[in-house]
Write a protein that binds this DNA or RNA. Sequence first.
DNA 1: ACAAAAGTGTTCGTGCTACACCCATGG
DNA 2: CCATGGGTGTAGCACGAACACTTTTGT
Lengths: 236, 236
Amino acid sequence: MPHSNTHHEVLIVVFQVRHFPATAQSPRSGPELAVLLWQRALDPEAGSWSLPGGRLHDDEDLTTSARRQLAEKVDVREVAHLEQLSVFSEPHRVPGARTIASTYLGLVPITSDPQLPDDTSWHPVSHLPEMSFDHGIMVENARARLAAKLSYTNIAYGLAPSEFAMSTLREIYCAALGYQVDATNLQRVLSRRNVLVPTGTTAPPGRTGGRPPALYRFTDSRLRVTDEFAALRPPA
Amino acid sequence: MPHSNTHHEVLIVVFQVRHFPATAQSPRSGPELAVLLWQRALDPEAGSWSLPGGRLHDDEDLTTSARRQLAEKVDVREVAHLEQLSVFSEPHRVPGARTIASTYLGLVPITSDPQLPDDTSWHPVSHLPEMSFDHGIMVENARARLAAKLSYTNIAYGLAPSEFAMSTLREIYCAALGYQVDATNLQRVLSRRNVLVPTGTTAPPGRTGGRPPALYRFTDSRLRVTDEFAALRPPA
DNA sequence: ACAAAAGTGTTCGTGCTACACCCATGG
DNA sequence: CCATGGGTGTAGCACGAACACTTTTGT
């Protein structure tokens, strides 16, 4: 009897780079990578924080389901990138009926600030609250995937505004990678790979003066691998 | 009514580098990457070739299920590496009850030659037969993943014998990548990354003479990322 | 001695980092 | 005219590709 009553859910790790008020632990060093979570009102694990998501419907595939579930939390148009991550299938990963979870990575540009339901909020990934079930591992997996892809794809388009100064993009990379990135080299690497193009326009300088920054735009707004071969390239 | 009668299956793309007899299309240029397939005797799509796999049981996770399903086709001990690929969830991807497929990548070392059931055989990925349902896409996805990981991980341990000469490893890389790889540079790249270590022993030379090759071994027999950052490395 | 296979050394190019220096704006 | 932030130029390095040359075996 291979099958009785197994459910399938989609869980989405939605990331955005956001500014958080300075605290004792995070002494004000720019914006941070944040994940969208909602707090469980009911048992099991009432009070703990969960990833957005829910049951897969009969007439939808996983990606469609992920978009539908997100629509209940944030305006779907704000999600600039969505991709499949791994599946969690341990038979007793959650109490009750067996539920297989397919996880997704979702990215929201730094410029949008969607309305959220009362039980939902953004949390810096560096200080996650108590997480439900295996959701903490899922966030960590997603963060690792994002960091890896930042170095060999154009995935940052999902976190960046449509037009931006290099200093803004630098902040996004620093927040997502967790270490300092040099804006000069960032510009050169991404330009060489044709990930970035200058718009030809500039933004007004800040209050305190300074040269007005040139604005850039991502060449594509779909995922593209920009450095396929770390080694063992095919012969020319 | 989100749920009625959805099934979940595991499908495994098992690769091995194998020698095939020379044909008109493949004029004898060394071993090729091959995939394990079985031929459907019954409708739907009788006669077409399918990936090994089947229903997920209630008390097993996906990886356990994949190993169990493979045990019916090949001796499980022969599978040196197994990792999750993506999920195929289109509601009508197969006729009948809805079935979600989780795909896996499996690797078998070049030295093993497992007994196969009558309906099952190895096929060069360069000349796939008519494939069932969406299984052709799954093979192509798996091939792309393997090729990518060969360049930044030690995944080749799954295709190589426990000890081997560099010329053998070169053949494996050539077959899996589909282009010529230089044995000299392969040795240097993998040594620098501490993927390979010399055993200190040599193998006897071939019939026609030649210097006896030094033997090597993979440092780890579990997947390890060996070149994490294509660019944007963290500062020293 | 010669062919065949393996291993070593050297050169070259390229892509990334780091850092110094130059430019444009507000006060 | 100076502080501030942005952009450019350049030197150095690390890695990998290509290829010539040397070593070790069998016939």
